[in-house]
Every structure is written in C-alpha cells, then in structure tokens.
Design a binder for these strands. Structure first.
Lengths: 352, 352
DNA sequence: CTGAAAGCGCTTACAG
DNA sequence: CTGAAAGCGCTTACAG
C-alpha cells in the first residue's frame, strides 16, 4: 500500500511478471534481447501496476537522461517563443523532456546558467538560441562532451541552424532597388540584435552591400535602429520619416515587428503604403499577413524543430551534420502589398 | 585525468578537503551542521575541482529534484510566452530547473504528458497553465503527492493564480456603458478560450451581466467570437461591423490581440476610433500601448512568478496558500484613447 | 534469452 | 560536528 502510493518500482513489476529486475529493464527499454513472450508478460505487469520509470535512477545508471536543455535570452519575445514551440513539439514527439534556461536576467544569471545548470548532468544535449559564448564558456560546454547545437548564434565549429542573414538582407534591399527605389533606409535591430545574434551588423551589411552594388551612396541618416518590437519600430520610423532631408521611399526593416511599427508610423504621418513608402521586413511574423507586409519568412518554429532533429541524430551516431556546419536554413520571400514602384521616380536620381 | 574529464565527483572533493563524502554533502547542501572551518575547506576544494553536483544522484538519494514542471497548451501564443517568461525568471532565481511540457499537439499528447512525464519523479512540483483536467487526471497528479499550482484553469481545490474574469469583463463593459454606449458587442475567445481557460463563457457572462444590469437587451448578433490573434479579431470585427443592422458603437474584446484586430477592421471600414467606435480589451498586451487601446491589464508574467512563489512555499511548508484558493490576481484598468463618449447619443436609446 | 551482482553519485539516519 | 554504511531505483557487463 505504502509502496503503491509512491508508485510501483521495477522490483514490483519483476515480481509480478515472475522475472528479474534486469529482464524488466531490458524488456521495457528495448536494450538487450528479450523473448517476445517475456516482453509481453513484463509489459502487462507494468501496465497493471501503473509502473512509471524513475528517470533519475535510470539516468544515473545509464548516463542518459532523455532530457535536452534549451538556452535562450528571452522566451517572451516572438522569435524565441516560436523557436521554443517548434523545439518543444519535436522533443515531446521524441519522448524527450525539455529543460528551459531563460537567461534574460542579465549576464550574471547567464553565467551561472552555463557554468552550473548545464553541467549538472541531467542533460543529454544542449540547444543554444542566439547565444554568444566566450571561448571559455564554449570550452566548458565541450568539456562535458555532450552534443551542442546552436540556433542563430556565432558559435565556432558548432552545428548551427541559421538563416543566411547577409543574403536575405541583400535580397530584401534589392527588391526595393529593383522596384526603382534609391532612397532606402534600414532600421536594424540595434544593440539587442547585435548582442544576441551577432548579426545586427550582418543584416545591415547585406543592406549596405546591395546598395553599393547598385551604386547608391547610403546617407548616414538612412541607418536607424530599434529594439525588436512594434513600438520600437514605430518610434524609430517616426524619427526617420519626420526628418525633412531624409525622405526615403523605401525602408528595409530587420524584423517584421519593426516593419509593422514602421507601417503605423507612416500611417500616422499621412504617408500611404506602398504609394508613398515601401516597407519590407524579415520573419513572416503573424502580423505580417494582417498588415500586408512584404517580408522574408524564416520559420522560427521550423528552426527549433531542425535543431532538435540535429541534436537527436548527434545523440544517436554523433554524425557531424555537415549541412548545419555550412548550409543555411531556408527562407521564403513573401511579396505582399507593402512594396511597390515608388510614386516619384524623379527622386531616385538624386544621390545626395 | 579520465575522472577529471567527466567532472570531479563528491569523492574527489572529499579527498582533497580531507573529509568524508558525507561531510562534503552536508557542507555544500547546507543540510546538517558543519563547522565553518570545514565548510570553507570543502567549498574551496569543490571550487578548485570545478565540482558540479549530479542532480540525478542527488535527486535519487534525497527525493528532491529542484525541478519544476510547467504544462501549457502553447508556448507560441502571447499570453503563455509571458507566463513562461515570468515563471522562468522566478525559478532561475530560486535555483530551480524548469521542465516545459507543451501540450499543443492535441489531446493524445497531452494525455501522455500527464500520465507519464509528470510522474517520472524528476519533478518536485507542477504548474499547469490554462489546463482542464479530468477528475481522473487530477487524481493521478494528486496521487504523486507533489504540489500542484494552476494558472487560470478550473482545477477544483487546487491553488490557482487567476484573475477575476467575470468582474473585469463586467468592468470593461460598464466602462463603455458609463460613457453612454448602449449598442455594445462582445468578441469572445470562442472555443479555444473556452477549452483552455473555461472562461470564454465567464468573460461573456461578465459582459451579459453588465448589460442586463444596465437594462440593455443584448442582440444576438452582438455576440461574436475569434481565436486569440490580431488576424482573428480583424476578421470577426469586420463581419460584425459590416452587418448593417448591427451598428454597435462599442466593442468589448476578450483579449487585446482581438481588440487590435478590431481597431484595424474599423480603420479599414472607415470608422474612426473612438469617434465612431469605442474598443476595449483585456491583457495590456504590448500592442495595446502602441494602438492606444483601453484595456484591463492582467500581467501574465507576474502570474507566472506568483505561481512559482506559491509552488516554492508549498515545497517548504505545504501551507495551503489560502489567497490562491479564494483570491484573485490583481488587474489594472488602463484607460487610453480607444474609448470615448459615443458620437451619436441618439442611438443609445434604441433598444432593438 | 535470463539472472545475480556491482555500480551510477549522491543523502541521511545512526553512532559517536 | 563528523564518518561509515546503507540505500535511492535503475542499468549493464559478466556468466550462464
């Protein structure tokens, strides 16, 4: 009774099935050969007793935890919540637990997360999202000798699910250029993005590259930045659009939330989109469709699932997953109604 | 060397400090008395060796896991991502791990999550978010004899962090009524909300109550529903506002995302807010401020943190947390610019 | 295919 | 305050 209340253990199952605990373990885990008849007997006994394995004991004995850690700087922000959703689904599907480490509370916390929590041996592998690690931190993680897969971070020699920031940014910019825009601004992710993804510059670089390629000289006031939010984008765009000698006809925003903010700012300033202003973003955020935003979709949930798939395969055969070392996660160019040929082509020849 | 690579164990620390493993355990965990001198010696040895405790071993031996499970139907939706963010911060602060169970993939998955994962003894307690459980499921959870705290669900006799759905809905509706509106619609959360929170009806009930209280007969076409998204709200509001004999002057939306969608719909239909239409939501979503939306803030991150606090206190002394059994989580009425006196007071006397 | 036994790395009465 | 020893509930060579 007492025993029952705390759940039947492997011994009880063994007794009921008339076999040894070792056999129960083999039958239930699938490791080691067991006759079909025995397996069935054991399974039935386990079912009858409502046996639930103790992961702690199992992990301690076997060294495997069926538990993956995910480290990200913020669950509350859209991108991360989507990644998490995708990863969580994939993990639950595979029968793995997911331990979440939200490092949002400043670097102090992040450090303790990395140094302690990840090494407490309860994890089979780690997925980092948009995390920059120092050489030392990376070394520590590697010392534990557990698979690490990154999403969107700059971890050297770590299998990484990433989109080609530079190319999609150049693509977005070229889209505006090809429509005839020449006065094109860029609202980047600013420090936040830079810190988390080390790609604020990469997206801006793609923009600068496309502009240079087209022989357009970028004016300094065309470069703005915003935090990743509609409010931030709105503020940045208002500032940008209010400046009389900035008068751009197109804006490439580093994220859809910023782009939506830009659309709102334009509206408030009496600018029509796309007649007076074309706007393009990155993400294919759910608001993008609502606002008819042209964007480059990057499917964060898919990225989360892809990282899980990579981790699981590493866990099985430690294959180096070459595509994650060199390839890029696919993106999708989605043309909607926020971009069009500029209304005043006369402007497009003025270069300063 | 070998040993070192896999991390020093408690024995190595004991040897280095010149004490027994038992003493190391006591010194490091704080359980049991250890002389200050010994404690320091042990701590230093542990630091030098980079000792990290094995949670699996510790949990197996002690029965405590320092790990809390959180079950929610969707991490990707705003409300849940915020709850998670709040809970994660609070847990990391307390030195607890957080295991996430995202049950979004249908009831089949949810069931296995509840029946198996939560019982694998790796968890000290469980926080459920917006989860309806059957009597049986609840019984199973209780059988494990681990603290359960709910957020927003209808779990009987379970300490629950919840806002007063009925009252805030009535409040929101009364706000419109007090401004002079009488033709007021309600866009609820529909099935989705009903299923997850069992409160779709509660929010609608609050609306109906306030309307009845004011002697206003609610016309059937004033009741609409939408999924929890801007897109959903926009669609629902368009349908509602397009109907010529519905002509409401105010809409109470069950969530800010729906309300924002409603604002967009109004704009597209050429209705000015608040001159032609007043809109009020619930949440204080980050978009609410951007859109000047009047709303009732419910601070989901705070709810997550509150649930964690409750769980931790239950873990310490098993106090029943009476406020969580009867009280409500505080909300905040935030008046912005989406609500005002209706332009055409003549209408407000027509009752059918 | 199956069992007895050692062991995973801690914690905690029990003595002292 | 500290140590020796048993035990947490599994897994897995090692034999058979």
């Amino acid at each position: 009774m007492e025993k029952h209340a705390r759940g039947a253990g492997i011994k009880e199952v063994a007794a009921r099935a008339g076999v040894s605990a070792a056999t129960v373990s083999r039958a239930l885990s699938g490791n080691g050969r067991v006759s079909e008849a025995t397996r069935r007997k054991v399974q039935q006994a386990a079912d009858e007793l409502g046996f639930v394995i103790s992961y702690n004991a199992s992990s301690l004995a076997s060294g495997r935890s069926r538990n993956i850690g995910i480290v990200m700087p913020s669950v509350g922000r859209w991108y991360f919540s989507q990644v998490l959703e995708g990863a969580a689904s994939a993990l639950i599907e595979a029968g793995y637990d997911l331990t979440l480490y939200n490092t949002s509370d400043g670097p102090g916390h992040r450090e303790s997360v990395l140094k302690e929590m990840l090494r407490r041996k309860r994890l089979d592998a780690v997925i980092t999202v948009a995390l920059r690690l120092t050489e030392e931190e990376l070394g520590q993680l590697r010392a534990v000798d557990k698979p690490i897969v990154a999403i969107g971070g700059p971890l050297p020699e770590t299998p990484t699910v990433r989109v080609d920031e530079f190319s999609i940014s150049a693509l977005a910019t070229r889209h505006l250029i090809s429509l005839g825009h020449r006065r094109i601004a860029h609202i980047g992710g600013g420090e936040e993005l830079e810190r988390d993804f080390r790609m604020g510059s990469t997206r801006q670089d793609g923009y600068l590259h496309a502009m240079a390629e087209a022989g357009i000289e970028v004016q300094p006031q065309w470069l703005a930045s915003s935090e990743f939010s509609v409010a931030g984008g709105r503020t940045a765009a208002k500032r940008l659009l209010a400046d009389p000698d900035t008068r751009v006809t197109g804006i490439f925003c580093a994220a859809d939330e910023i782009a939506v903010g830009t659309l709102l700012a334009a509206r408030e300033l009496g600018l029509r989109v796309p007649e007076d202003l074309s706007v393009i973003g990155i993400d294919d955020h759910e608001l993008a469709e609502v606002f008819g935003l042209t964007t480059i979709g990057q499917d964060p949930a898919g990225q989360g699932a892809a990282a899980v798939a990579a981790v699981l395969s590493l866990l099985q055969n430690r294959a180096p997953a070459p595509d994650l070392l060199h390839g890029y996660y696919p993106t999708e160019f989605v043309v909607r109604s926020s971009t069009a040929v500029p209304r005043t082509p006369a402007e497009s020849d003025a270069n300063a």
